[in-house]
Design a protein around this nucleic acid. Structure first.
Lengths: 337, 337
DNA sequence: TTGAAAGCGATACCAA
DNA sequence: TTGGTATCGCTTTCAA
């Protein structure tokens, strides 16, 4: 039997308990004063009839909707999903729900979604994208609600959360070195990506100013091409490769294997992103850098809540640490040369 | 300058226009009667002061929140994201927003999310998962709002939307045959998955009762293993392989190439899922079956809206057609034998 | 200790 | 043509 049982209001509880609505409200919210007996009786009746307060009514009263919006243009969800998961996790105990709006780089659509969220009185908006040096196609400055940018470019004076690319790169390099690798190369995406540049700079700062960096595409194919270039050429060959993302790393690992080189024995490889579906299916599975996007999401959620509740938050760019995920492509750190 | 400009209410508009709130309401909603002049004046003043009606207040009045919930336990978002995108697309013009709740197979978490959504008076809930023969860890029957199951098991008498696995399999087989393949094999996931079984049954119904089906895992590794088994054995070798998902297909394609077999010239391969990240990066790129999850989401959105607005919807399982996405792994259909 | 009434922001009926 | 008032479900002040 499908049927929408209609909702029970505080009025119904009052009638059932033989008291007034105000008494019920006070009883359930543990406010006002009354005999413990009355309070308990009302509480048990309320649960008995299955009363749940209408959040809309409370929102109207408190001017707080216990709702935040997540705006994204990342269609693959590679960044959005872990972020979303972290946000949700941080906010669910506070009774806050998340509106997800996928706007696909369409300014008009973005505006429609933002307006809809504002109309619904969201307590704040978290903006996220697929790269940290591009902003969403909509201006979020001057909105009547707080905004937090997570893995996206933000406006002057706003709160921006991102992963610490340089630190992530260090992590990868340390790992390669601790397994005894000395001839390191960095294969990464286009130079036009701030995160590619950031990692590459960290790489050269750490390994040396003329450490080799190959900029290209974020694809497996680029991984293959790079290996061809590196190993067909004369001269010194790398024994450790730090890749700008897991797809490149996969291409690199496959290309090395096809050349009869063993990973990690002959060449160790570290990826970036910890994109499960790529990293875990690569043979050998990729040791890689995780940007901890879920944690980033958690912090974004808590931050937007702070802002919404009027607590002070320092504006500016905040970089959160990456961590190393050890699988097989980089050997074990106690392994000599 | 960051600052939350406080919201303007209908009252402010009324004051600015020198009329009553009821007149403003009527003017803006094109109801009631008044001089076109008054109406226009009020409208322009409203836009002038940046008035946007508080959706919460309207919801309270209309008992409609213009909000739906999407409940999912699919962490990768492989099914959820396209679905979400379709739902959102179908509902955004109606001013409906979507709460996304990721519940990760945790019954308690699921209940918390469902309760939060109900408290916020969602107009309906769409439940989705990562396989069609499992239900979410929460009972959605008897809720005071309509529920639609999309790519998830549903309850007796509910509305369930899913992809037509059998038809998808037919599509793959037709494609293989139209490129002249005659010795077809199906490599797929565990027999315990309804969708694997459904596709396998369709395969045997079409190709013949003793057409070979290999059940295994949904992984690249299984693709490799199957190829080893098939090509190391004595006897007839397949010239066309239909894979249960794109990951298996990728393993198959890689394994074939490693054996010196050309894809698609020697063996044609068709995948399933059209998971861009896998299908497009495979060399050659995978011809595969797309479950049209976005369209499925669109229909789920429209259906939940129908239900929410009291329009009749036939209960039961509704299978939506898959489509073929042609890339390179299956050659072109005008190619002879 | 309990309850009546005002009000959150909007809409709609019914008078004027 | 316009405006006062009740209402949606809830919380909170203030009076009883």
């Amino acid at each position: 039997m499908v049927g929408r049982s209609s909702r029970v209001t505080i009025h119904d509880v009052a009638k059932a308990a033989g008291v007034s609505v105000s008494t019920v409200s006070k009883a359930l919210n543990d406010t006002g004063r009354m005999t413990a007996e009355t309070r308990d009786k009302i509480k048990s009746i309320a649960t008995g009839v299955g009363f749940r307060p209408n959040a809309l009514a409370r929102s109207l009263l408190f001017n707080r909707s216990f709702t935040v919006g997540l705006l994204t243009n990342d269609t693959y969800g590679r960044f959005t999903l872990p972020l979303m998961s972290g946000i949700s996790e941080a906010l669910v105990d506070q009774g806050v729900s998340v509106f997800l709006c996928a706007i696909e780089d369409d300014p008009k659509l973005a505006k429609i979604h933002v307006d809809a969220m504002l109309d619904k009185q969201v307590d704040g908006i978290i903006a996220t994208g697929k790269r940290i040096d591009r902003s969403l196609p909509v201006d979020l400055a001057g909105l009547p609600v707080p905004v937090v940018y997570a893995y996206s470019q933000g406006t002057e004076g706003s709160v921006i959360l991102t992963a610490d690319d340089a630190q992530g790169a260090q992590l990868a390099i340390s790992r390669l070195r601790s397994t005894g690798r000395r001839r390191l190369v960095h294969i990464t995406g286009p130079e036009s990506f701030a995160s590619a540049l950031e990692r590459a700079n960290a790489f050269q700062r750490t390994v040396g100013p003329d450490a080799k960096v190959l900029f290209g595409e974020w694809t497996e194919a680029w991984g293959h091409q790079s290996i061809a270039a590196l190993f067909d050429a004369e001269g010194e060959r790398p024994d450790g490769i730090f890749c700008g993302n897991d797809q490149i790393a996969r291409g690199v690992v496959d290309a090395l294997r096809e050349r009869g080189l063993r990973v990690p024995e002959d060449v160790a490889v570290v990826g970036f992103d910890n994109w499960e579906i790529v990293a875990a299916q690569t043979r050998p599975a990729l040791t890689t850098i995780d940007m901890n996007l879920k944690e980033l999401g958690r912090i974004a959620g808590l931050t937007i809540l702070d802002l919404a509740e009027g607590r002070p938050v320092a504006p500016g760019l905040r970089k959160l640490p990456c961590s190393l995920v050890v699988r097989q492509s980089c050997g074990s750190s106690d392994q000599g040369n």
